[in-house]
Write a protein that binds this DNA or RNA. Structure first.
Lengths: 242, 242
DNA sequence: CGAGACCTTGATGGCTATCAAGCCGAGTGG
DNA sequence: CCACTCGGCTTGATAGCCATCAAGGTCTCG
């Protein structure tokens, strides 16, 4: 089995730095198990019990929090190459759920083992932290969007970020990618109602900026849309600390 | 013992687990420098250049992002015992600023040295990650608040969280604490206008739930306010991974 | 063909921003 | 000592963004 190429952790961490043979070797010592899950199988409980986290290798997933009144806030969408379930493992968020959005393929590993590898090889720890930090930057930018951008700007920013992340993951182009979200998902992620999302999408389409149709996003005028959203992809860049 | 108490890192990490003598010894090897800063001295640039981060030991600070249109989103307020400047160091957020809100006392350290200590003693790394994860949980809860709670609920939640954090830091009681924020700060943190914050505060006061007056918060009916906000402090609990 | 999930559009209303004005207290300088 | 300024707080009036309610359309699938 050509385990090297199929090693999701190696692929993930090498995005943040060039890994040496020794580092790859160390990572290979972290047991990984590939799983395939379909839409109806929640991921929330999968990891919690046995301290397992995942790397998403195919498909989309999302994490969300349910409020007492039944409303839902989607915290983030996860695509190929993203960590999954790490946040809930490291911090005790109650009512944090993770669900596949499409059929997904994930690679499971023990968080303790990964950190053990990082302890043996500090550069690996640096890469792990870079991954965590990038996710945090995405969350912060999300917070800014909801807090201080109007609905059209917010929506525009959302699709621009997704495009940038998907292109980086080799899952499409930043201005044209498959997107399995419903308008209800977008609404719960962006803090809007689905009805209003619908109107905003129409407006963006009529303005020749962005078209969302049948699970596909076309960004018709990338520059104008970026300008509208105030989108600066700097926060998606990797950065390592030592 | 006295030495322990003067070591900000030891104090911080011991919140997440009981530290052994050997672990305290290792932490003592991380150089720390105490600084005092006043309101007009930004902290943003202080760390970036030389990879320094801080622990806030006295006073309040806050981090925020400036948008192109001049509006501001405050990401979080930091109080005694909190990490400061770690996020900007680990991830490349542009336009992320940190400012003291009062005169502050901070303990500076090199992030590389701290992680070095964590590499030598895995349990320390676990505590560091627990600290990072807690901050992340706070950010996520903030996101939920802005995305899916109305202005009164959001404001209530905000003061309840602050109270819980301050009490834990030994800076007051969860239902009565000093709070140097202006209504403009609250507005930019909560995604509202200062004018509306003012009206919400009046409403909460008239309902006998919470009083904010001259830099002091009184929570008049803790249970009712918690119920209104849907506040569940679970996300503030520490949690270690191994 | 019926059901269900999702999308679309119109009408209405409410929550919150914005504009405008004034108040208060603290610091400052004439 | 007192006007002056400035930051912060307060309140009223108006407007607009977006939620909600209602209804119907389209598509897929059993």
């Amino acid at each position: 089995m050509d385990q090297m190429h199929s090693n999701a952790l190696t692929q993930k961490l090498s995005k943040f730095m060039a890994l040496t043979a020794a580092e790859i070797e160390t990572l290979a010592g972290v047991a990984q198990r590939k799983l395939t899950l379909s839409t109806d199988q929640g991921l929330s409980q999968q990891g919690q019990a046995n301290s397992a986290a995942f790397i998403l290798t195919r498909g989309w997933a999302f994490s969300y929090i349910l409020l007492h009144d039944g409303s839902r806030q989607i915290v983030d969408f996860r695509v190929a190459g993203d960590f999954l379930g790490l946040r809930g493992l490291l911090s005790p968020m109650s009512d944090l759920f993770i669900e596949p959005l499409t059929d997904v393929e994930v690679t499971e590993f023990q968080i303790g083992e990964l950190l053990g590898a990082g302890t043996k090889v500090p550069r690996l720890m640096s890469a792990i932290l870079a991954g965590i930090a990038r996710d945090q930057a995405i969350t912060v930018e999300h917070l800014v969007s909801i807090g201080r951008r109007g609905a059209p700007e917010r929506t525009a920013h959302f699709f621009l970020e997704l495009g940038a992340r998907l292109e980086e993951a080799g899952q499409g182009r930043k201005d044209n990618y498959a997107c399995p979200l419903t308008q209800y998902h977008m609404a719960d992620a962006l803090g809007l109602s689905a009805i209003h999302i619908n109107r905003v999408l129409r407006e963006l389409r009529e303005d020749g900026l962005l078209t969302f149709r049948k699970g596909e996003v076309f960004i018709d005028d990338y520059d104008q849309l970026s300008k509208l959203a105030g989108f600066d992809p700097g926060y998606l860049r990797a950065k390592t600390v030592f």
